[in-house]
């Protein structure tokens, strides 16, 4: 590993995981997808360094992480503001950050959003399993040292020594593409599944009342609390779950199924969150106000495409 750039983990925090685009072609065995919960912020972190969108990034949930640079390196930080500092000097997200050997990059607590993404030139090096380094702790797959382990104090993070590509000209994400995670979240939901089986009151309230993010929220699913959704719901046979599916167990409180979701489930579904909505929800803290808005496939696709094209175009303008 000589010639490889590296950082040392001094403190790991609640959960910091290596993530690439995720694991595909294995859902029929029950393997989950993985990948960054907020693909938008992760994509921008890679774009700032001229990396491919799917290059492995670090997903830092809720802060608490301290890294020590053991070589000079340029990283990129996007997504949540977790009170990051470099040698005690404040560091805002959505920009590149130059670290010199011996510099300490520390994350404190969430100030805005939940998950920050830290990219390295060429992507962090991880142990691939089934074609992906996406770290899924529950399945024991992927991660920076394999086995589905999160970052731990004393670990080493590596990235390729040779710069694969020149960096983009700009070192900051344009203001227009930064998301203000403190605003209430409006999430586009494509109606699907068993939505027709819910009663009229429930459907009205689902799209007109405010929801809040529940304490039961992780990479598998994010529960919302609010009006109780009821209806003459059918006893269901378990079926495949698409990313962003919103299922409603008999207690009437929806669960938005995220990157590490179960592959098959048997609760009635209201529909599917748009990809933009999924990324937004990933940044909502417990208690954050959320509204659901009905959205068609065409609109959801157009928003997704526009967001990805902006990231791609930025990364393509190189010095």
């Amino acid at each position: 590993m000589s010639g490889t750039g590296l950082l040392r983990v001094e403190k790991a925090g609640p959960q910091a995981l290596l993530q690439d685009a995720g694991r595909f072609g294995v859902r029929h065995l029950g393997m989950t997808q993985g990948g960054p919960m907020d693909w938008h912020a992760a994509g921008w972190a890679n774009a700032l360094l001229g990396n491919p969108a799917s290059a492995p990034v670090l997903e830092i949930a809720m802060g608490g992480l301290t890294l020590m640079a053991e070589a000079d390196v340029t990283l990129a930080l996007c997504g949540a503001d977790l009170g990051a500092t470099v040698n005690d000097r404040a560091l805002a997200p959505w920009q590149r950050v130059e670290l010199n050997k011996g510099d300490r990059l520390a994350f404190d607590l969430p100030r805005s959003g939940m998950r920050a993404y830290l990219a390295a030139p060429g992507g962090w090096i991880g142990e691939a399993s089934l074609g992906s380094v996406a770290c899924v702790t529950r399945e024991g797959l992927g991660g920076h040292k394999g086995g589905g382990t999160a970052l731990e104090a004393g670990d080493t993070l590596r990235f390729p020594a040779a710069r694969p590509d020149p960096m983009p000209v700009a070192s900051e994400v344009p203001e227009a593409y930064r998301v203000d995670y403190q605003q209430p979240a409006r999430l586009g939901l494509i109606p699907a599944g068993q939505i027709a089986a819910f009663d009229g009151r429930s459907l009205y309230e689902a799209f007109n009342r405010e929801w809040q993010v529940d304490t039961r929220a992780d990479r598998m699913g994010i529960r919302l609390t609010g009006p109780v959704l009821t209806g003459p719901l059918p006893a269901m046979v378990s079926e495949g779950i698409a990313p962003g599916s919103v299922q409603v167990p008999p207690d009437g409180q929806p669960i938005c199924l995220m990157n590490d979701r179960q592959t098959i489930g048997g609760y009635p579904r209201l529909g599917t969150l748009s990809p933009v909505a999924r990324a937004r929800l990933a940044q909502c803290a417990v208690g954050h106000p959320v509204r659901l808005t009905a959205c068609g496939v065409g609109v959801a696709r157009a928003q997704w495409r526009a967001a990805i094209e902006a990231i791609t175009a930025f990364g393509a303008i190189r010095s």
């Binding site: 595909f24 294995v26 859902r27 029929h28 046979v237 079926e239 495949g240 779950i241 098959i264």
Partner: peptide, 12 residues
Amino acid sequence: LVDLVPSYTTVL
């Protein structure tokens, strides 16, 4: 094709 999820009565 990205993924197929067959179940009892459905395929995603």
